[in-house]
Simulated assay, not measured.
Amino acid sequence: MALNLYLAFFKITLRMKKLYTSRISGMGSYVPENVVTNEDLSKMMDTNDEWIQERTGIKERRWVKPGSGETTSTMGVKAAKIAIERAGISKDDIDFIIFATLSPDYYFPGPGVQVQQELDIKTVGALDVRNQCSGFIYALSVADQFIKTGMYKNILVIGSELHSHGLDKTTRGRGVTVIFGDGAGAAVLSRSEDDGKGLLSTHLHSQGKYAEELSLIAPGMGKRWVNDILADNDPNDESYFPYMNGQFVFKNAVVRFSEVIMEGLMTNGLKKEDINMLIPHQANLRISQFVQKKFGLSDDQVFNNIMKYGNTTAASVPIALTEAWEQGKIKEGDLVVLAAFGSGFTWGSVIIRW
């Protein structure tokens, strides 16, 4: 009896507790100055512009120049500074940091604490998200929950990647290497009391049985660690380069993209006709075009920039979101849908009323 009364009181308390809405108050992006074209890649490996564009839609990407001093965290900081300024707040207003990446400066600690140090933010919490291509979507979802409950007011969310230093730049690795680029994007998620605008819902999924279809095996505690690699000194060891079963990933991506977008729309009583702007993770232009056709969206309703930057994994959605907003393609009141699919497999979507 006492337990039942306690549970009833707890449920009433939850209903009475005010839930806030989170909104994106500022965005920023940064990409290295060094442009690497398909023609440049053809001088490193057996490939050409036609082959790359036909399979991926990519014309060029940005790669950090070796010795430049640029890292995943420094690029993230540059994007973050822009986002904070555009949010109309100062670094001292940031309550929490979430950093999504698969390419941290160190194996540990993660880059979240490096951002806290570099921006001289007070000793707030810093969380690192390792969900690869869907990392920024997962990070936004986590930030959204913190803000909804009233725990934090302004959360800095970053997606940043430095792929180029870890790619196999020979013909052996061309299937992966031609796809990836470097860059960073950031957003400030802020508390709002306008229930009609902001992040309406987020949706996250995973399917671990396909983990090795898109992966980087070594160094890892489970199979091959640094000592093993050094001891073998095998030039043919591919375990420390990214691997991707391209066709298999493509087939799964187009299905999961569609599913998770529809899940988000249905949760909010919306239809595909309500979408003003879809910003998919920039994995492959062919995937984006497939999803666009399936949802019956025009070119003005889908934003793609993979042609210029390649796949920047966790950075791709925030870079694209920032550019779409800068170009005036997103306006107040628009329904904006973010979606991503990648290694894990993990995938997710975010539904936003701008």
Rank of each mutant, 00 (worst) to 15 (best):
A2W: 10
T13A: 07
L14A: 08
K18S: 03
L19H: 13
S22T: 02
S25P: 06
G28I: 12
V31P: 00
N38E: 09
L41F: 05
K43N: 12
D49I: 01
W51K: 02
E54W: 14
K59E: 08
V64I: 14
G67R: 01
S68V: 03
S73I: 01
M75Q: 08
G76E: 01
I84N: 06
K91N: 15
D92I: 10
D105C: 03
Q114F: 10
Q116M: 06
L119Q: 04
D120F: 03
A126R: 01
L127M: 06
G135T: 12
G135N: 03
K153C: 06
L156F: 04
I158V: 15
G159K: 04
H165A: 15
H165N: 14
G166C: 09
L167A: 14
K169V: 06
R172D: 15
V176L: 11
A184D: 04
A186Q: 10
S190I: 00
S192M: 11
D195L: 13
G208S: 15
L214A: 07
I229C: 12
D234R: 07
P235V: 02
D237Y: 03
E238F: 05
S239N: 06
R256G: 02
R256V: 00
I261M: 05
E273P: 00
D274C: 01
R286G: 04
Q292M: 12
I306Q: 01
S316C: 01
L321P: 08
L321N: 07
A324H: 07
A339E: 10
F341L: 12
F341T: 11
F345P: 13
G348R: 03
